[in-house]
Simulated scan of single mutants.
Amino acid sequence: MDSSDDEYLASATVLKYFINKKSFGKNPINDKRSEFGEFHHLYSDLRKYPAKFKEYTRMSIETFDYILEKIGDKLKKKWSNFIKVPICPCERLIVTLRFLATGASFASLAFSFRLGKSTVGAIVKETTQVLWDNMFTIHMPQPNEQCFQEIAEQYWKLWNFPN
């Protein structure tokens, strides 16, 4: 490389190109999330129709509210200079449930909820971890011999099938 190459690489035009190549922050498409995003558009209407809510989330409204009550505080994010408008725990749970219920890609969910792909990925990861950490001991206790005996008895009662 000679000095003319150095001058070219240091030129304002080239530097501007490389600096602006990757932008940080919110995409303009996502600016209207509260107006056009799936959560803000659909959630309140779904709560009026329990059958549709269950079809959308794969759980009843009561179960959704129960889960949100148990983990909502752990999903809250604080306002800061970096996080201007935090995503509410309810929306975080809905995004995660849509991912689990449909298997849709993060990119697909990002477009429909008007969030970034990495944001959707982080939400799903954080929410599933909070769900596991706070609910597995309640709803999936460590099995013991008595538990297995009860399960075997239920099989026998329901299907006349041992063990």
Rank of each mutant, 00 (worst) to 15 (best):
G37E: 12
L100S: 13
S44D: 15
I83F: 14
I123L: 12
S4E: 11
D31H: 14
V14Q: 00
N27H: 15
M1D: 11
S118L: 09
E62M: 01
T57Q: 08
G103R: 07
N30M: 00
S34I: 11
K84Y: 09
K52A: 15
G25Q: 05
Y8D: 02
I67C: 04
F113Y: 10
E91C: 09
K84W: 04
Y155S: 11
T57E: 08
P143Y: 00
Y17M: 12
E69S: 06
E69K: 07
M1W: 09
K16Q: 14
L75N: 05
N81I: 00
F111Y: 15
G103I: 04
F106Q: 12
Q129I: 07
P162C: 14
L68F: 07
L42F: 12
K54P: 05
F39V: 12
K16P: 07
K48R: 09
D5G: 04
K21D: 09
D45R: 15
P28C: 03
Y8N: 03
Y66Q: 05
E55L: 15
K52G: 01
T102W: 04
K84A: 13
F18N: 07
E150M: 14
L15E: 09
V95M: 02
G116A: 05
G25E: 00
K26N: 06
I87S: 01
S60Y: 02
H41L: 15
Q154I: 12
W156M: 15
I138L: 13
M135P: 01
N30Y: 09
G103W: 13
Y43V: 09
Q129K: 15
K26Q: 05
F148V: 03
F136A: 08
F99I: 00
E7K: 00
H40M: 03
T127S: 14
R33H: 13
P143L: 01
I83C: 13
I94R: 04
R47C: 14
K74E: 15
P143V: 06
I83Q: 14
I87L: 14
F64N: 02
G103F: 11
T57S: 06
I67G: 05
R114M: 03
S118F: 13
A12I: 08
Q142W: 01
K16A: 11
E38S: 13
N81A: 04
F106V: 03
P89H: 11
K157I: 14
K26C: 00
I19G: 01
A12W: 04
A10P: 07
A104S: 12
P50M: 10
K54N: 09
G121F: 05
K16Y: 04
K26I: 00
Y56C: 10
I138K: 10
